[in-house]
Write a protein that binds this DNA or RNA. Structure first.
Length: 723
RNA sequence: GGGCGAUUAGCUCAGUUGGUUAGAGCGCUUCGUUUACACCGAAGAGGUCAAAGGUUCGAAUCCUUUAUCGCCCACCA
């Protein structure tokens, strides 16, 4: 009989147990014992190498580890594939900021090669930290297959994908309006824009006989069109195309009247001037009426020659000076100081977005093409495919199921509004576009052209381009590997609902074209972690719960089960320290249950004599069977919170509170003692199995005291039917 | 402007396809230190399931309307 301390010590146990798992090799599906033909696999959504893990990561790791451990115990050939994401723009901007802060140097001061070295060094350190933290959560990931979105294998996948889509005309280069970040000097995708509420003055300017309202007077130099609604009676005397000579900021201009139905008659004066090069709505109006485009602001945010005396000034500095001039010319009618509107900013650490028309690379989501093999996707053979149609089809057809289901509607809503995806970025950290130029010639291939004189496109790809390939690039694509054949499509894609669009939709897009398949069968979306008052966690509020700190205090198992215990999929999760503390008590309870049983028996293979069962014996065995069934059913149905609650309820309030108490008297009776011990042994073993996916460390540690041949992590799952 | 969701015990939340007296954790009250555990045990209080109406033998669950809150998308010069 071993002497066990009366309190479970998570700190001492966890690193020891994790090492034991690593040594066993069972994280790798190729090493699992027995005949395993059915695959189950999840690819880890790769954390960005921009820092450390937060509770959101912890939640993701816990949910996936539960599913993985459950399936591994259930006899599946189980693979959980780890990786990290280079997160192009996010990582680069972080390193740029750090370098500027300590050395006051920009990336241009360092040069592309030196700068990339520095980014890679930072990414490596960040990677190492993240991997260590991931291990501490107990994650049973197959480290032998670890991938990085920017390593050589993934780079080959990216170049191959680009080439295929380029040849099919799905990737094109074009002049279009893009979101330009003048500070970071790059384009940004629509999804990476963050709208911020701002109160700024709205200026009412005299434009000849009209009054126009604008929040951005510094863009107004080139305005030579004044637009109004055709039904607006205030302007009925003016006709479409009429030209008017008027005095403007830098002298007189010839303005043209344009009537357009998109104008809101209620707003301001009902008349506005347009700046087609720097505003998406204005751009549409200009296109519709075939108007001239003039660039006012350059890529650094400075005014061009058209601004006259203001040329070369940054728009921020120019604005007050322009206001002054407008004042002195008497062109300001009034100023509304409390105008509230929203401005676009780059969520990846940049600043205010200036829309610009630029030549960039795009993915065409509406171009029709023939699918190479329609079978796998059940796409109607009579129809031509588009990327948009395929994205919709994968969900509509039921090939991919989304949980919770209502997110399907959100998904469709997003697809319907989807525009061509701008994939080129003018940053350095990322996959460089596999296109080379020589004069007017363009060459796109997986490898660089052999002959001289070619220059590669300096731009890199949007980070989501490589993430979109993740489910199959990690399995060896474009090579036809065994892993790819066995493990694709993946079983479950588990991630936060906040990246349904960024990532989930793009994986569907890439996979349906490149593999003519789906990337995963099930999408499971979890919610955001909030504090106990439902506030978002943020540094400024000081309400952040650091998962590693919590683990030190309460143990990994406590954190794991607290994270999933009382919230259904897709809902935000309030996480209070009290809850984690409660689960530490639960781990300790389980520890002491085991201690009691171990102090009474060491034979965990004892057969139960079914003819000699007392009422409490029958009750606990039937409750055990019932709980096992319900836990299994709930895990299968992805209701992990339900499963955990049933396990908790059984362990504490059936096994501990009722049966263990009853067993004390039964064991006094020589007639019943042996059978009671057998029931205790059997119940403990099964309970440990049922709890293992949720609390792997404490259960494995107890298991190691039960004279078992194998680790608990590969013990056979009991679903209730076999009892 | 378009869409999605929430509203259940003091607090935080469960409640799968409508079916017996609506559940959990924490908190609270009273009692108890019985050799697995005080990170414990026993007993208990506490909810007209946001409001109104409807469908049904039966509604927290389905339908309609309203109120409050939250999120996503689009975006107005």
């Amino acid at each position: 009989m071993k002497e066990l301390s009366s309190t479970y010590n998570s700190k001492e146990t966890e690193s020891k147990i994790y090492q034991k798992w690593l040594d066993s090799g069972y994280f790798n599906p190729d090493n699992l014992p027995g005949e395993r033909t059915k695959p189950f696999n999840i690819v880890l959504p790769p954390p960005n190498v921009t820092g450390i893990l937060h509770t959101g990561h912890a939640l993701m790791l816990v949910i996936q580890d539960i599913l993985i451990r459950y399936h591994r115990m259930s006899g599946f050939k189980t693979l959980w594939l780890p990786g990290t994401d280079h997160a192009a723009i996010a990582t680069q901007s972080k390193v740029e900021a750090m370098i500027y802060k300590t050395e006051e140097k920009t990336r241009h001061d360092l040069g592309r090669e030196e700068f990339l070295k520095r980014v890679e060094q930072y990414a490596q350190e960040s990677h190492d930290t993240i991997i260590e933290q991931t291990k501490r959560l107990g994650s049973s990931l197959d480290w032998s297959r670890e991938a990085y979105t920017l390593d050589d294998a993934r780079n080959l996948a990216v170049r191959t994908a680009f080439k295929k889509m380029y040849d099919a005309g799905l990737i094109y280069r074009g002049n279009r309006m893009v979101n330009w970040d003048p500070k970071m000097q790059t384009t940004v995708s629509d999804d990476e824009i963050e709208w911020k509420e701002e109160i700024s003055p709205l200026y009412y300017l005299k434009y000849g006989p009209f009054t126009i309202a604008t929040a951005r007077p510094e863009t107004k130099f080139g305005d030579k069109y004044v637009v109004m609604h055709p039904d607006d009676k205030r302007y009925s005397e003016y006709t479409h195309g009429q030209q008017i000579e008027l005095e403007w900021i830098n002298g007189s201009v010839k303005a043209t009247v344009i009537k357009d139905e998109t104008i809101d008659m209620e707003f301001g004066t009902g008349a506005m001037t347009i700046t087609p090069r720097h505003d998406a709505t204005d751009n549409e109006i200009a296109q519709r009426h075939n108007l001239d485009y003039e660039q006012i602001i350059d890529q650094k945010g400075k005014l061009l020659a058209i601004a006259g005396e203001f040329a070369g000034l940054h728009i921020k500095k120019a604005r007050p000076l322009i206001i002054e001039k407008l004042q002195s010319k008497g062109l300001i009618e009034k100023i509304d100081e409390k105008y509230s509107h929203r401005i676009a900013t780059n969520s990846r650490g940049g600043e205010i977005i200036e829309p610009q028309i630029m030549r960039q690379w795009f993915i065409d989501v509406n171009k029709e093409f023939e699918l190479s093999s329609k079978q796998k996707l059940n796409f109607p053979t009579s129809e031509k495919a588009t990327l948009k149609k395929l994205m919709r089809h994968a969900i509509e057809s039921g090939l991919i199921k989304i949980y919770p289901e209502h997110f399907q509607k959100t998904y469709f809503h997003w697809i319907n509004n989807l525009k061509d995806w701008c994939i080129s970025r003018q940053i350095w950290y990322g996959h460089q576009i596999p296109v080379w130029y020589k004069g007017d010639e363009i060459y796109c291939d997986i490898e660089a052209p052999k002959d001289s004189g070619w220059e590669q496109d300096p731009d890199t790809l949007d980070t989501w381009f490589s993430s979109g390939l993740w489910t199959f690039s990690t399995l060896g694509w474009p090579d036809k590997t065994k892993d790819l054949e066995l493990f694709h499509p993946t079983s479950v894609l588990e991630t936060g609902y906040d990246i349904l669009f960024f990532w989930v939709a793009r994986m569907v897009l890439m996979t349906s074209y490149l593999l003519v398949d789906i990337p995963f069968k099930t999408v499971y979306l979890h919610g955001l972690i909030r504090d106990k008052d439902r506030q978002k966690m943020s540094k400024s509020k000081g309400n952040i719960i650091d998962p590693l700190g919590v683990i030190d205090t309460y143990g990994t198992d406590a954190l794991r089960i607290a994270l999933i215990f009382s919230t259904a999929a897709g809902n935000d999760i309030p996480l209070a320290e009290e809850k984690i503390k409660g689960m530490k008590h639960f781990a300790n309870k389980l520890w002491n249950i085991s201690r009691f049983i171990l102090s009474n028996t060491d034979n965990f293979e004892a057969e139960i004599d079914m003819t000699k069962l007392t009422d409490p014996d029958k009750e606990i065995l039937s409750k055990l069977k019932q709980s096992a069934g319900e836990i299994t059913e709930n895990i299968e149905g992805l209701r992990l919170n339900e499963a955990a609650q049933i396990a908790y309820q059984f362990t504490w309030h059936e096994l501990a509170d009722i049966y263990i108490e009853a067993s004390k008297t039964q064991m006094q009776n020589p007639e019943l003692a042996e059978n009671t011990k057998a029931v205790l042994a059997k119940t403990l073993k099964t309970t440990l199995k049922l709890l293992h996916p949720f609390m792997p460390f404490v259960t494995e540690e107890i298991w190691s005291n039960l004279n078992q041949k194998n680790l608990l992590m590969i013990a056979e799952w009991e679903n209730g039917d076999m009892m």
